[in-house]
Write a protein that binds this DNA or RNA. Structure first.
Lengths: 217, 217
DNA sequence: GTCAAGCTTGTTGTATGCAAGACGGCGGCA
DNA sequence: TGCCGCCGTCTTGCATACAACAAGCTTGAC
């Protein structure tokens, strides 16, 4: 490790959280993590501090760090804001996308089509992420892109749960098609509205999410 | 300091940044801060890690921490997203505000009126913050409230610059009046639009901001 | 038998030590 | 005189040591 072990550790632990290896509410023992990653407690603590600042980890004074376990209500609120931000990114993308953005978006969309057709939910999950990132990039707002990516990452575990719902992959892909069309047509309001609806978890989708959340524990 | 020195330190340093004591681009020397606050380097480092995760501080490997110095373009993008988020909070507040929210909003608005009339830009700056927080709270979305407060805090130094522009305080207060009316009338779209326009720094206001940014250095 | 107080143990929070890399100055060479 | 490279110093990054506190258990009293 030439430089900055804590960076690697932060990503490693964050990954463990969003992939569900460290479950919500789980205690993150410093020495345990330290021995596991072959470092001392110091860089572990630094990584946990960062995750705490991001909101992924809660640090209770003198009692250690735990993975945050947001209530369903809060998960909904997170998706709600994500929808608004994605809608904004879509609107900006519709107005500002360049030729290279168009190509990236269509390529990501094509990948989604393949994985959706193959019925491989995990592959779609992955391609879907690339698709959304392409929209953020096309917005040409570096700050918005960063914030969207951060929240997107944080919602990863829940998105994965959602894609397990029957037929959700196909519905998601169909929505993508409309979104692509709106962005490439320069239809700001259309892109905004479609993306918001695509992301926000409402109605039946919210019930499904809550049910899956309960089952996952 | 019985517990959590790093928490205090984080707030202390963050405050130093947003109040301008630590100027953008300034180097944050660990031992210097440590001696200043009478602690060792360890809690200082932990505080800097948190500020780095938030985005207030940049840590260059082996070369120390510096206060981030965003380009004007990026500051604009931050205000742009802030506008979108505040608009969302306003729309939610219009739909969901309760009696206590109404009271808090009117009280904050009255305070703004007083400080605007007195011509005290600093007092208005302070009351303005309370006013906006009242809107976040009235949205009844805990997550949105947190995110808005975080970004609002991060934009503090620039907001302060803006209020120095001639007549900006009065214009700002007049806009507040329309926002309050829209929220209390339950006009979601009106509240969203007015708040977005109130927050986003566009046209002349952007030029003024850039000019003030340049002058501040 | 139950409850409470004190101890024990384990974990966190902070300080310090040590090694490796970056920056600046100095000298040598062209 | 100007430029390149080497060395010293200073700072960061990680490890380790130590102290303070929390949780659980034991023990004793009622």
């Amino acid at each position: 490790m030439t430089t900055n072990a804590f960076l690697k550790l932060r990503d490693e632990i964050e990954n463990g959280i969003v992939t569900g290896e460290f479950e919500p509410g789980a205690r993150l023992d410093e020495v345990q993590l330290a021995t596991r990653f072959g470092v001392s407690r110091t860089p572990i603590r630094e990584a946990l501090m960062q995750l705490n600042a991001i909101g992924l980890v809660e640090i209770r004074p003198r009692r250690g760090a735990v993975v945050v376990d947001p209530a369903p209500q809060r998960v909904f609120e997170m998706f709600e804001l994500m929808g608004e931000m994605e809608g904004m990114a879509g609107a900006l993308a519709a107005r500002r996308h360049l030729e290279e953005d168009r190509r990236a978006l269509l390529a990501a969309h094509a990948s989604c089509e393949q994985s959706a057709a193959s019925g491989d939910a995990d592959a779609y999950y992955y391609d879907n992420e690339i698709f959304h990132r392409a929209i953020y990039a096309a917005s040409h707002s570096g700050f918005l892109e960063e914030q969207c990516a951060a929240l997107h990452r944080r919602l990863r575990p829940y998105r994965r749960l959602q894609l397990r719902v029957r037929n959700r992959v196909k519905v998601s892909f169909d929505e993508h098609a409309g979104i692509v069309a709106a962005i490439l047509a320069g239809d700001e309001n259309g892109a905004r509205q479609l993306l918001r609806d695509h992301v926000v978890v409402q109605g039946d989708r919210f019930s499904d999410l809550v049910a899956n959340l309960a089952r996952a524990r």
